Computed example of a mutant assay.
Amino acid sequence: MVQQVTRGIKISVKTNFEGTLLRSPDSRFAFSYHITIENQSNDSVQLTSRFWEIKDALNHTEIVKGEGVIGQKPVLKPGESHTYQSGCLLNSPFGSMSGYYNMVSFTSTQKFKVKIPTFKLSAPFAVN
């Protein structure tokens, strides 16, 4: 598990290899990730959007931007957390993801970014 705290918002990430999709002529490698967003600050906050940079071992980079996470824009009061699961497909059995969430504080109405720590994606059969 990888974790990081930005402005009192803790991001925890667990990953899992889900399998290989075999399609002629290419194979794709499926990964899931489970993210917990925990509000350790004294302010209520809302996640408004996300930014992802997904890289594979073949130097392919995909940028993903969007509103909320999994169709939701969770509001977190102090001490609350939100957990969700998503996934990605890579062209190689190794890769990584990193990014940030755009958040807004209800106390100050200030917008801020919460870093999502870089996490590795690797198929167990390909581990060296």
Rank of each mutant, 00 (worst) to 15 (best):
K120R: 10
Y100H: 15
H60E: 14
L76T: 04
P74R: 11
K111I: 12
H82R: 06
M103S: 05
P74N: 10
G66P: 10
K55M: 11
G79C: 04
V114G: 00
M97D: 07
T109C: 09
I63K: 12
A123T: 04
G68Y: 09
F106S: 04
F125N: 10
T107W: 06
I63A: 06
P117A: 13
E80I: 07
P74E: 14
M97A: 04
Y100L: 15
Q85C: 02
T109M: 15
E80P: 03
L58R: 14
F112Y: 15
Y84W: 11
F106A: 02
A57I: 08
V114R: 03
S122H: 09
V114M: 08
S81V: 01
P74W: 12
N91P: 02
T107L: 11
E67T: 12
E67L: 05
E53S: 06
Y84R: 07
A126M: 09
H82Y: 14
T107G: 00
S108V: 11
G71Y: 07
P78R: 13
T109K: 15
E53N: 04
F125E: 15
E80G: 02
K113N: 08
K120A: 04
L90E: 06
F125K: 14
S105R: 12
P78G: 04
T83P: 03
I70Y: 12
L89K: 08
S86G: 07
S96M: 03
I70G: 13
I54W: 10
E80R: 07
Y84K: 11
S86C: 07
K111L: 13
L90T: 11
D56A: 00
I54K: 09
S81A: 04
G66R: 09
T109E: 15
N59F: 08
T118R: 13
K77M: 08
K73G: 01
M97N: 03
L89R: 13
K65F: 01
G68M: 10
P117F: 09
T61F: 00
Q72F: 05
K115A: 09
S122R: 08
L90I: 10
N91T: 06
P93H: 08
H60T: 10
